[in-house]
Design a protein around this nucleic acid. Sequence first.
DNA 1: CAATCTTTGTGCACGCGTTCACAAAGGCAT
DNA 2: ATGCCTTTGTGAACGCGTGCACAAAGATTG
Lengths: 279, 279
Amino acid sequence: MRRGGPGTYDLTYDRLKPRSTRRSTVATGRTHRPATRSRGIPEATVARLPLYLRALTALSERSVPTVSSEELAAAAGVNSAKLRKDFSYLGSYGTRGVGYDVEYLVYQISRELGLTQDWPVVIVGIGNLGAALANYGGFASRGFRVAALIDADPAMAGKPVAGIPVQHTDELESIITDNGVSIGVIATPAGAAQQVCDRLVAAGVTSILNFAPTVLTVPDGVDVRKVDLSIELQILAFHEQRKAGEEAAVDTAAPAAVRRQPAATDQGPDGDVPAVMPA
Amino acid sequence: MRRGGPGTYDLTYDRLKPRSTRRSTVATGRTHRPATRSRGIPEATVARLPLYLRALTALSERSVPTVSSEELAAAAGVNSAKLRKDFSYLGSYGTRGVGYDVEYLVYQISRELGLTQDWPVVIVGIGNLGAALANYGGFASRGFRVAALIDADPAMAGKPVAGIPVQHTDELESIITDNGVSIGVIATPAGAAQQVCDRLVAAGVTSILNFAPTVLTVPDGVDVRKVDLSIELQILAFHEQRKAGEEAAVDTAAPAAVRRQPAATDQGPDGDVPAVMPA
DNA sequence: CAATCTTTGTGCACGCGTTCACAAAGGCAT
DNA sequence: ATGCCTTTGTGAACGCGTGCACAAAGATTG
């Protein structure tokens, strides 16, 4: 057993992937390149692909044919050099002097993320949050489909939420098996999370999105990502406190209202990892 | 103008930061460093403090007097060396040969995170998610207090959610001002997020937790953290696809015990040759 | 076809974050 | 006191991610 530590992502993708040597490590005299990268896309890049995809989809809907890295980067809120490097891991999909073909890129990224196939997902714990997640539109939209809603409360059984009847926890295993579910969402109270997690994993789930405020322990090979409201708030509070303290310190020099700088844009200490980290 | 990318903790300004602010000088003469490493505490460490705090609180409730870095690290799901280094940024609060005093550490971390004070928070967008957040217990529990619920739908006005009457967007500014709110939570549809964000910031909010699937643009000095369900799912899908592909590659050797393929079909995660090729 | 302009793709350097490994430090028994 | 045991605190090495800056590549124009 292993515990997924923040930042680890349980990456096993270092194993060599035999095929796909396309765009082989070019003739450049490589010193040494252990198998760690033929197709290995950096985790940081993977985390940004959904962002690019969203921006590209918007462009696609507006029938924009091509975008430059600069434009797309602005839309996705990242540095253009970073974006270009990210795309370079996928291959050379751009045209110098022109930019990237929107439709083509949408397809490539979708494929890379595995969104060209259908992923049945189960949500366990249909409380306020679970119900909200079930109703969340962005779910079904792209590759994901809510296969079942599961709750431990017998009173909930059969009751439809977001048009889907809630099923009792007893059926968890059969639901997973019958639908070939590999992604599970845990929205139970913290106390039940680990137990639910264990059952999901035992039933075959290998990816878990955890909304419960607990550290989940999972076997090797299972990915866990967590979304934790209170942690996010606490991080914001930290920075807020710091800001307040500093403002007070410089108060004599800078009147309170000066803090606003119009044109500038800043995502603050954001980042994909901080907001949500693998558990 | 700069947009913080999802990368790691957006620290673009790190470059000019007087890095030697470690423990000798506490917040002293520094030009000005927007929103980053404050008293020398790495952003990555800040992001873990809430985790430690949670584990420590549990120990505290069980009246455990002290913990070793090893034990606490296990409880928080991190490496013990990392934990020790994290704590070292706060000061030397441990006793060699013994460990850390639980109560003392709870206090120190709470203080560091700014949880010893009360943070009024407003939630904008009381749909399924907003309501779920309002009902979320972990909110009020530790330093945070839901000061108001705001929604653009006039029909919602006055209607109580989680015991708090929803107020109309028109009152957003006065609510922020009157309550001295500095943290806002956006749970509106993507389309309204930026507008709401602008109003929050204009009214004085300097920290935003964004649940809307959009990149927010904010002035310098405002922190934004995002929580994005679809991005998380997509990242999981990526790894899931990778796992499936690798499994298939070793198929001959692996007994079909826990094998699981996405419902749709396999079609290798690689399809190196795109089915569609919009020139 | 050559010159020019635009934008990609990437080598390179830098800094953050993680982890190892160990000396220093406190507790405890003799 | 002395020596042993435990656990902290951290120096050092390494790897990853970021962003700059520029050469290469293709479009475009004359």
